[in-house]
Simulated scan of single mutants.
Amino acid sequence: MTQRIRKAVFPVAGLGTRFLPATKAIPKEMLTIVDRPVVQHVVDEARAAGIEHFVFVTGRNKAVIEDHFDMAYELDDTLAKRSKTRELEGLRADLPAAGATSFTRQQAPLGLGHAVWCARDIIGDEPFALLLPDMLHHTHGRGCLAEMMEAYDRHGGNHVAVAPVPEDQTHQYGIVGVEDVKAKVSKITHMIEKPARGTAPSNLHITGRYILQPTIFNLLAHQERGAGNEIQLTDSMIALSHQEPFHAVRFDGDIYDTGSKIGFLTANIAYALDRADLGPDLRAEIERLIER
């Protein structure tokens, strides 16, 4: 019987230099996709999948993320006095339960693997989910992590979300080889970070959603620095794959890298077009701009 996934890790210590000067005082994870911060969209995905405890690995100048997931008494009181019932109920619905959030510091920018390792004492000896807040997985069906949890319940072990990319772009991503490249869930046979052109085992790239066993922490503790002189999560996952099974879960929706300006702008448009209160008017404005 598989051990239930209760906790999820969110690495939010990055500097967001690609969005300066906007991110000089505001964490990149708090930039909004329509009217919700990027990190809130990812927490929504985790909560919908059944996650109960949210672990944020932060850095300097990220206190506003902690404030976002806390009560704002003055704001709540003002909304109540002004009869802003809908807005007040929305804030309360987003608020995690007491004790359901934890925050730990990554004091130095040593890579994703190091950020995950920083959460080891909070996660303990449990399997956990890992969600990269930059990567929004947009779908009209079940969320990406919910699909992964279902696959985990069937197969156990470790899981990563994957999606196809053009063959000429595989050298830009972490790539997996699988037993059945067309299957929704397939056992991973090979894993490589940014393969040289023409050497990728498939065109399926790792999309920023993971379910990992706690044994990854032991490997990360001794992981040597890799690409970019950072501790790379993929390097430890490759080592772990020699000990434990890994499965790829194919995500069939749209993925937006909000850490890039084009991805961020496109995500705003896509999410807004989906909303009944914004979509029709926005579509008309886009058509007007294109015609002009």
Rank of each mutant, 00 (worst) to 15 (best):
T58H: 13
T58P: 12
T58S: 12
T58Y: 15
G59N: 02
G59K: 02
G59C: 08
G59L: 06
R60Y: 12
K62W: 10
K62E: 01
K62I: 09
K62Y: 10
A63Q: 06
A63D: 06
D67V: 12
D67P: 00
H68L: 14
H68E: 07
H68V: 10
D70N: 10
M71F: 03
A72V: 11
Y73T: 14
Y73R: 11
Y73Q: 12
E74W: 05
E74R: 02
E74Y: 02
E74P: 01
E74F: 04
L75K: 10
L75M: 09
L75H: 11
D76S: 04
D77A: 11
T78K: 05
L79A: 04
L79K: 10
L79T: 07
A80R: 15
A80T: 13
K81Q: 13
K81R: 15
K81A: 13
R82P: 07
R82W: 15
R82E: 15
R82I: 12
S83C: 13
S83I: 14
K84L: 11
K84M: 10
K84V: 05
T85Q: 14
R86W: 14
R86E: 09
R86T: 11
L88W: 14
G90V: 08
L91H: 00
L91F: 05
R92L: 13
R92F: 00
R92E: 12
A93E: 08
D94P: 02
D94G: 09
L95G: 02
P96R: 03
P96G: 07
A97C: 00
A97Y: 08
G99V: 03
G99S: 05
T101I: 08
S102G: 14
S102C: 12
S102Y: 13
F103W: 13
R105W: 15
Q107T: 14
Q107V: 15
A108F: 11
P109V: 07
L110V: 01
G111Y: 11
G111M: 05
G111W: 09
L112R: 02
L112N: 08
G113L: 06
H114F: 15
H114Y: 14
A115L: 06
V116D: 03
V116H: 03
W117D: 06
A119S: 12
R120Q: 14
R120H: 14
D121S: 13
D121Y: 15
I122Q: 05
I122F: 07
I123V: 09
I123A: 03
I123Q: 05
G124T: 07
G124P: 06
D125Q: 08
D125N: 09
E126W: 03
E126N: 10
P127T: 07
F128H: 05
F128G: 03
F128D: 06
A129H: 04
A129G: 10
L132H: 07
P133G: 01
P133F: 07
D134I: 00
M135Q: 04
L136D: 08
L136I: 06
L136F: 00
H137G: 01
H138Q: 03
H138F: 02
H138Y: 01
H138K: 02
T139G: 00
H140C: 06
H140S: 07
H140F: 10
H140T: 09
G141C: 10
G141R: 05
G141V: 11
R142V: 09
R142A: 14
R142L: 13
G143E: 01
G143R: 00
G143S: 00
G143V: 02
G143M: 01
